[in-house]
Design a protein around this nucleic acid. Structure first.
Lengths: 149, 149
DNA sequence: ATACATGCAAACTGTTTGCACGAAG
DNA sequence: CTTCGTGCAAACAGTTTGCATGTAT
């Protein structure tokens, strides 16, 4: 099962990260990693907190913030600020590279993919000496549905 | 003088926008537009507020927020959230189209330009029916200087 | 046994809101 | 004269911080 594998892989990467940095392997941290990797979409801290409550995990918001930072550092998730004021996150390991279009009318976020972005990263990196680890691309505009109205 | 022209053009666009929307032409709004277009770089609300105080303009933060929203709507500025929690803005009219690289180590923001991004926008727009008005591209990584250390 | 991580609540910060006053139309 | 915009301060929301307790090492 593919999901199973991803989940295991992520746990291993995270364990390696913690060991490497000398951080402790607490059950709370693993519970958070697990919950995040149990679904694909974007999420914010508040809904993650609610979801973990539902699963009967007892973790505080502070620990969620802390663990999210660790995961971002370990390249297991990425932070988004689409402009509505709420910071969103999404898992990044083994999930198809993609970018986002945001409708300025209805707020919908649509994913798209274009591999020319990798080419651009390569050449900018080559010409500037800036080592590019990750990227974020947002296209703002009016989605198909809103445009019909 | 080129700056003079830009400033005049922007004022005209803004006036047209206000008239079109039926909003009032208040001195505070023009003072804010003027101050923003008196420099090029990124800025946040707090530093703009301070700068206007120095110029002896009396405007409240609330009015700054309000006017910034109008300018964004009029496509005279763009909003950035580079990830440090502070929302930054930058003028956009008659300023070379560019994007940003953010050093995750020292926080530096470097501008770069690549016109292939326009090609991508075009083809994504064609294939999805999403009307793309503007874009934001962030490359995250380690800048040349930090990489030397 | 010794820090480090957690939970909780209080503190903090950037932004929004409500209201009375002032000015644009 | 009417209504919208402003200034001010209070409210708000998301995030960070401090401290006592718990627990991984």
């Amino acid at each position: 099962m593919e999901t199973q594998n991803t989940s295991e892989m992520v746990k291993d990467i995270f364990t390696g990260y913690l060991e490497n940095k000398g951080y402790r392997k607490t059950p709370e941290r693993y519970a958070i990693v697990d919950t995040i990797y149990s679904h694909n979409g974007h999420f914010d801290v508040e809904s993650l907190y609610a979801q973990m409550k539902n699963r009967n995990y007892r973790v505080s918001r502070a620990t969620i913030y802390n663990t999210i930072d660790l995961m971002a550092d370990a390249k297991l998730l990425i932070k988004h600020q689409f402009g509505d004021g709420i910071t969103q996150f999404e898992r990044v390991y083994n999930y198809k590279q993609h970018d986002h279009m945001i409708c300025t009318q209805c707020g919908k976020v649509i994913e798209f993919f274009d591999d020319r972005i990798e080419d651009i990263k390569q050449s900018i990196s080559d010409s500037t000496g800036f080592q590019i680890d990750s990227h974020v691309v947002y296209f703002h505009g009016i989605c198909k549905e809103c445009n019909k109205k």
